[in-house]
Design a protein around this nucleic acid. Structure first.
Lengths: 128, 128
DNA sequence: TTTGTACTACGAATTAATTCGTAGCAAACA
DNA sequence: TGTTTGCTACGAATTAATTCGTAGTACAAA
């Protein structure tokens, strides 16, 4: 068990974490039912993944009857922070604003979202 | 050789790509010299990595004497776009503005950068 | 009580990334 | 003419992720 801080979830692990963050807690079956809608996979595959994530310290679990109820150790906010920071470092030479402009340029944002961002920027500037 | 579009570089591959994007073209030795400053590693490790990246279609190369001169197939901009899009999808439920605010909240940006972003936002809004 | 169901645990196969040693080859050099 | 130098190619070991089959167990249902 290492620090959850240093853990770098794989893509499969991220899928599980996302579901857990949405639900708060979940059993292997809960998770598996969601995953199955996205792509076919065996129950024991999900089970094994979650067992390994538990061993790695990414998940905690609690026996409930014969089942285990899992939850994520790392919070969604923290994971986002880490992953964004890493992307800034490795892909944008450490420049957050480069990343921001890249994300905005990807035209995925509506005018309303752009307004939100502008408001957020103003808040940041004023605080300084 | 699959489409370079679909390729997902590993961390080691990203290190090599970053150097190649900076230099434009480079030999294995060039790359290895840069990498070695960051962490110890054997020359043939770098060689093998670049050979595999070549086989995957991530790099092209050209014989020059007995050496190969490599360059990246995918452009930095394209790679950034892909990786940002993927992050938005997997970590931010598809919301670019969520990612933007996360990146800004990470306090890594100077007031000057914030101004740049604001200017960029205005340009976007007016264009719409 | 026997059978079925729904779990967990475990081990094994597969695939991919990473690392590096060794071999071969050609040009430069002593 | 050897011999060293610096490259590529190749194969093998290691490690990690992924997938799934099988076995064990406990509780519920027949």
């Amino acid at each position: 068990m290492t620090k959850p801080e240093k853990l770098k979830p794989t893509d499969s692990e991220m899928e599980i974490l996302n579901i857990l963050w949405d639900k708060g807690t979940a059993t292997v079956r809960d998770i598996h039912e969601v995953l199955e809608k996205q792509k076919p996979s065996g129950y024991t595959t999900t089970l094994k993944l979650m067992q390994i994530m538990f061993e790695k310290g990414m998940l905690t679990r609690e026996a409930q009857g014969k089942m285990h109820v899992y939850s994520a150790v790392i919070k969604r906010e923290k994971a986002r922070e880490q992953v964004v920071q890493k992307m800034i470092d490795t892909m944008f030479s450490g420049s957050a604003s480069q990343l921001v402009m890249q994300a905005l340029g990807n035209h995925t944002s509506s005018p309303k979202e752009l307004e939100e961002i502008k408001a957020y920027l103003d808040k940041l500037s004023n605080k300084k």
